[in-house]
Design a protein around this nucleic acid. Structure first.
Length: 313
RNA sequence: GCCUUGGUAGCUCAGUCGGUAGAGCAGGAGACUGAAAAUCUCCGUGUCGGUGGUUCAAUUCCGCCCCAAGGCA
């Protein structure tokens, strides 16, 4: 059976993914599928560096603005939606272009992750997190996982409460250890991926990230955060943990000076870019492009074109 | 000019009752199976301001000098 081609544009934040994806979509007649864990939320436009309405006018974008900021969202939901969306685009004879910096979402698509099989249970999670709030509780939590799923426990660090809790959650809800579900052979995928990874020299990337934060503030990021809070989005909401939001919430509440929050925001952005870099560096088969190099754009277009020519229905 | 307190890692500082030093942050490397812009792990040699002296040994004690902040004139 013929596989669905997916051209992917990945890379650290502020390295030029959006611009490149628009050029590719324009040149190849493609449509863009968002692969950013924060751009899925409605009314979070400035802080997530969502493509503008003008940019979306001529090129169809998918999986933007699909979740209310009050709602949780997960990689499993994303993977399901993305697969459907990608298949629907290709069914019309159009190239899907997957764009975004969320490496975990990419992996879920490329590797067909089983993801534990059970959705998260907010109440159980709250209980487990409460238990982990003391050093003794954390030890007990880890010991519990060791007892029911030794393989997962061995893989995880005791301090990684989020993953320890999730592994325990899977067992408590399904009766099957997470590690047992994972050991199956990786499934055959109905997609063929081509990865373009954007990057810049590190000092340049950090400078661009800083400048972009300043631009976001100039475009009203603080107001965006205030509006979200005013409309009833709780500060604890998953969406509000995004960079640019979590730092400005205390400013809106008057607990923190703007200047200090902006420093933290820039720092967190740099840390994030670095983590993304680490993730995508480990992904095999990615074609790396320095977006300040004069020939990178034409090279990217050539690679995209070749890929599409080979895979076109 | 005098007095006081400082001058230790890129930054903020701790410390050595004399045996050449260590935290946080920054920075770097990495992990990642339903929170992933989340969560977690690992990585610390630097003329201890300069220069003389005392000492087996000084970043540590003493003298002088330089720099900074505060105070008194």
């Amino acid at each position: 059976m013929r596989k669905t081609p997916v051209l992917c544009v990945v890379g650290p934040t502020a390295s030029g993914k959006t611009a490149l994806s628009l050029r590719l979509a324009h040149a190849l007649g493609g449509e863009i599928v968002n692969m950013d864990s924060m751009q899925v939320y409605r009314r979070m436009d400035i802080g997530t560096a969502k493509p503008t309405l003008a940019e979306r006018e001529h090129i169809p974008h998918h999986l933007l603005d699909i979740v209310e900021p009050t709602e949780p969202f997960s990689v499993a939901q994303y993977a399901q939606l993305a697969e459907q969306t990608i298949q629907a685009i290709y069914a019309r004879g159009v190239l899907p272009i997957l764009t975004g910096g969320t490496g975990f979402y990419l992996k879920a698509l490329t590797d067909g992750l089983s993801l534990g099989g059970v959705p998260s249970d907010p109440a159980l999670r709250a209980t487990l997190n409460a238990q982990a709030s003391t050093p003794e509780g954390k030890k007990a939590l880890y010991a519990h996982l060791q007892a029911v799923d030794a393989a997962s426990a061995a893989r995880l660090h005791i301090n990684d409460v989020q993953r320890v809790s999730r592994a325990l959650e899977v067992y408590l809800l399904s009766g099957v250890p997470l590690s047992a579900q994972k050991s199956e052979a990786p499934p055959e995928r109905p997609f063929v991926f081509r990865l373009l990874a954007t990057t810049l020299e590190r000092p340049r990337l950090y400078a661009r990230a800083d400048a972009r934060v300043d631009a976001m503030l100039a475009h009203g990021l603080l107001e965006e955060v205030r509006t979200l809070l005013d409309s009833g989005v709780p500060a604890q909401a998953q969406a509000m943990q995004g960079i640019g939001y979590k730092e400005l919430v205390p400013v809106v509440y008057g607990h923190t000076a703007l200047e200090q929050a902006v420093d933290t925001l820039k720092k967190n952005t740099r840390h994030y870019a670095k983590r993304q870099w680490t993730w995508f560096r480990a992904v095999e088969g990615a074609e790396w492009l320095d977006m300040e190099h004069p020939e990178s754009l034409s090279r990217a277009l050539r690679l995209g074109e070749t890929f599409w020519e080979e895979q076109k229905p």
